[in-house]
Amino acid sequence: MIFLINSVYIVCSVLFIMGLKLMSSPATARRGNLLSAVGMFLAVIITLLDRNILSYQWILIGIVLGALIGVLAARLVAMTDMPQMVAAFNGFGGIASLLVAWVLFFKSPNTESFTLTTLYLSVFIGGITFTGSMVAFGKLDGKITTKPVLFRGQQFVNSLILLALLCFGVLFLFPDLAGISRSSLILYAVILSGILGVMVVIPIGGADMPVVISLLNSYSGLAACAAGFAIRNNLLIVSGALVGASGIILTNIMCKAMNRSLTNVLFSGFGSAGGSVVAEEG
């Protein structure tokens, strides 16, 4: 059965790769999307045969609920509101990876360090992706001000949060060092990565959101990839890495189309706040 599942996973990977390839040309883009959707459908169906799955009740509830919301959101939304829907969907993908890793932790809290590291990474990246995407959604939807939100010492605070997340990551591997339990550490990681996601997107102006969403899309791929390492699933690793890598390239292409660099997009808000705008583009 494992052989059958993995064989189908190969087919799914090929469909995703071909789908992405076809999507970069206008004539074949729609067929590419369909191909990748078929790949996803196959992946879901074959995974349901996994003998580790004991009960289908909760899966069914989750799928029906998610499909209902997904269809309604995709159908009802106005054409002009598409970019923020992409942001929201992307955030949901991020939090799903976070939750997959968290559930794995609850099931086996004392597993080997390799699994612990990757599941921590999945929580870390997934958390940033979720709240970051939600802020991007809010900004595009006009629910949050589209102006860059800045305060003094913002970058310092961000660095501090990042440092704390890294330290907690180390402690997560060696919980005896500080006497904090793994379950509290992973909870802190969930909260802090969520805060960090808000903090890194909020100083960016609304006009730059498409680039930010593209970057966050790449992150959600990486989160899925990390989750794939944690649960030892090749398909998640391959698809996640594909999205992560192609997302970076796409982000780069989008920046170039705007004649700017990615650092300029991500940190230009900070320069204007300090009052000392350096004319680096000239």
Partner: peptide
């Protein structure tokens, strides 16, 4: 393309299925 690859990153659903199922 961004939206399409975003849908692919939903592959984490495969992981979620085994999580919820077990």
């Amino acid at each position: 393309l961004m939206s399409g690859s975003n849908a692919i990153s939903g592959i984490t659903l495969v992981g979620a299925l085994t999580s919820a199922g077990s």
